[in-house]
Simulated scan of single mutants.
Amino acid sequence: MRDTSSTMTTPTGNQQEELTTILLVEDEQDLLELLKYNLNREGFNTITAMTGEEGLKQVRSTSPDLILLDLMLPAMDGLEVCRTLKSREHTANIPVIMLTARGEESDIVRGLEMGADDYITKPFSPRILMARIRAVLRRAEAELLNNQSGSTMSSGGIHIDPDRHEVIANGEAIDMTATEFKLLSLIMSKPGRVFTRQQIIETIHEGFAAVTDRSVDVQVVALRRKLKDAGRNIETVRGVGYRFKE
């Protein structure tokens, strides 16, 4: 029986939190288990499927943050799965990385033309795979922030106007730095979702090595202080990161 669980234990070992979820669509059982092991070890939630049809069902029921998609699948192949995902409005923005033994230039071009965000050939280095996954997730988060330009957000007494670079908290205008504005926009973009400190570093600071987990904590403290009572909406998930209260 295939394990389709999407929950894993946080680094504290005592609680479970919603982290970045990756759907693995791969018909080789051994490789599927290897991918799942490496992703879970790196702190990702994993959901698995062994056919294209099952993968599409998992997308409908779980809305993963990224999909690792094998090209050579029985019945519906990876290209068709990718084309289907990118043609539907509610799944078009989910990043897709194609993982396959077919490394010819024509195959890569076809995959990218179908809307794949990256293309990795087998055999592969787990470290390189993780780096590519994080790069694609980082680009997706950055694109999300860019798409928010011109779109206001309001939640928990906080109102953000990206075009005016304006934040109103409980009726009071709040003066913010560019970094604080990006941080607040990021966590407010998906209320209830946990953003790890590393995700915040990679998205807000573009992975700048001098920015540490402690730096993120200090920035969050400063942000809460400026937001006053509304700052309570920024919740700490112990051992993981931060989220905006739903």
Rank of each mutant, 00 (worst) to 15 (best):
F181G: 00
N147Q: 14
A178E: 13
N170E: 14
E166M: 13
D161A: 07
I187D: 01
A173W: 07
G156S: 07
I187N: 03
S151V: 06
N147V: 02
T121L: 09
S125R: 10
D161P: 04
G156W: 01
D163Q: 14
P162W: 02
L184Q: 01
M130W: 00
F181K: 01
V167G: 03
L183Y: 00
D161H: 03
Y119G: 00
K122W: 08
S154M: 06
L145V: 02
V167Q: 02
R127M: 12
F181D: 04
A178P: 02
L184E: 03
L137P: 01
N146F: 07
M130F: 12
E180G: 12
L137K: 02
S125I: 00
I174W: 00
H165C: 13
L145R: 04
L184C: 09
A140E: 10
P126S: 10
S185I: 03
L145N: 02
L137E: 05
A173Y: 08
I120M: 15
L145E: 02
G156E: 08
T152Q: 12
E166D: 09
I174D: 03
A178G: 11
K182R: 14
E180F: 04
L186I: 05
R138Q: 15
A178Q: 12
S125G: 11
I158F: 05
I120W: 07
A135C: 10
A178N: 10
R138I: 04
V136N: 06
G150F: 09
T121A: 11
D161S: 07
D163Y: 12
A140C: 12
N147I: 03
K122R: 15
A178S: 13
L137Y: 05
R132A: 12
E180C: 01
R132L: 10
